[in-house]
Design a protein around this nucleic acid. Sequence first.
DNA 1: CAACTTTTGGCAATCGCTTGCCATCATGAT
DNA 2: ATCATGATGGCAAGCGATTGCCAAAAGTTG
Lengths: 331, 331
Amino acid sequence: MRPLRRSTVYDVAKEAGVAASTVSRAFTNPRRVSPATREHILGVAEQLGYRPNPLASALQSGRTATVALLVPDITNPHFFGTIRGAERRASTAGLTFILSHTEESGHNEQRQIERLERSVDGFVLAASRMSDETTVELAREHNLALVNRQIEGLPGASVDDGRGSWQIVEHLASLGHRSLAYLSGPKDSWLAGERWKALRAAAAGHGMRATRLGPFSPKMESGAAAADAALVDGATALVAHNDLLAIGILRRLAERGLDVPRDRSVVGYDDIFGADLCVPALTTLSGPHETAGRAAVELLLERVTRPGTPPRQVVLPPHLVVRDSTGPAPV
Amino acid sequence: MRPLRRSTVYDVAKEAGVAASTVSRAFTNPRRVSPATREHILGVAEQLGYRPNPLASALQSGRTATVALLVPDITNPHFFGTIRGAERRASTAGLTFILSHTEESGHNEQRQIERLERSVDGFVLAASRMSDETTVELAREHNLALVNRQIEGLPGASVDDGRGSWQIVEHLASLGHRSLAYLSGPKDSWLAGERWKALRAAAAGHGMRATRLGPFSPKMESGAAAADAALVDGATALVAHNDLLAIGILRRLAERGLDVPRDRSVVGYDDIFGADLCVPALTTLSGPHETAGRAAVELLLERVTRPGTPPRQVVLPPHLVVRDSTGPAPV
DNA sequence: CAACTTTTGGCAATCGCTTGCCATCATGAT
DNA sequence: ATCATGATGGCAAGCGATTGCCAAAAGTTG
């Protein structure tokens, strides 16, 4: 590999018989040069194989044409949709897309932001673990958009899991369940908090008993512990923090000789790939997470191109996908 | 958002009573300044909240501490392992990680490389769709590492699907199958080519008949067409280009009233999440794709830190995971 | 103590582009 | 013909680091 010398604005300028500034403008600010010279410059640039150096450009202008997405756990299928959506949107806007894993730690998020601050135009924070205060503080100096987290005054896109949780409870109530157990996820996850609040409220509204168990790590392996805890609790309906956990629970219940949905009903969140493959196929709350990822990048863009506009919050409706893991409450 | 003015080397230099060059060296080349001044500078920098601007640094030095991963299709679970592995390795090496989707097009890969060339230290190309010639050509000017593609003289990490295909055939042969159909994937995928070559050779070695059908797009939706084609062919063993396709095939066969593994055996490649959840659970070739992703970044790093060393090729062994979708050939 | 080597730090050029400001020129209005 | 006006292009000063080269200081050696 021999990184050959690329031609610069100066080479193009000399060859085209204009000043470097004019070359620059021909590329970044077309209306600032006459159509004729622009054509000419572009032609010369083309034949010289000129390509603007994004670093140099960013250094001077402060605009990097890059966004970063910070996810707590790259390994968790829950985030794939968000990653996809964000990447696709960035790509169509001609933005470079940086992906970074924060290991479920707010502190890490903060460090990444500091590390990348000069290299990006903004950050999308997915399921951020940082406190409201820290986030607001950071938002003063950085361009942030949140996914699945709502903070007053900050732009964000989230799936309305509160409303979704009501749907879950209604579904379960209609099947005659009188009690549910929520197998909770990471305790500093905002989304998890929202889910539980809504579940509890909805349960109360339907005269159902609701208990929160856990927290459990949102992985299949935690399913056993979660299932066992739920059995002790005795609730007939188990609502798991996410599909991974729900699938783990399904497995454990089968091991312990219980039939789903006859003896217990199980519901998950996310509708990940695989949720309809397992047996019984999982009833789960499907959220437009890809859309959320896309929207978040969109919001970031908005703040760059039209600063001063008030931050928007996009809330997306989820829908319950009823499959085979829920059924009438046992008598 | 008010991007406050960050302090620069000059601020630190003035405050510490040294030259900017010394500050720079204190950070990037510690042994070039005396321990005492270094300590002092670091202290001042700390209290001024100084953070080096990666853009400025990259512009001058040519080193960006960034790598890019180009994948044909972000949506395909096959790549999740590679993405994870590459991201994790990059992250532990302190590198910024750029993820980019090339829409299954070699031409797009090339454009991305051109766009990002100054912004990264190297590229990992996963399942590249470019021709050998183009790739070799690009490798002259860029730092490339390939995943699941082998080109003479270029560094790369790949899963040995040739060997894996032999394992598949041996497994099928041992179950008494006398014929197999390979439901092929994208036709310009190198990996797909390797698989078929090995399958055909192995089948010949075992006196089995082998046909290649397709190409099919490697998605679940294509399963129906693939299954139907295979039924026409009559082979008792169906080997699908990947698990997605295999799962689609499973569904179609069930729809058409055929029992797997009694009437037909089905095998996939990749062992994606969900392969053990579907019914029957899928027999599939599990490859260490995460390791491959990690290794590729490793190779890139090697070329940056020790230029001149001959490019290495890492070949990783896959293993066959036998589940419930394969069984004795029907009599 | 002279002569020589090694450390340490500073100077200034450089990476490649952007942009505020100014000069020029063509245009239209008067 | 005169002047205000806008369009166009050039000049030059950055952006914030890195690094080759040099000089002074410090350390070695006989």
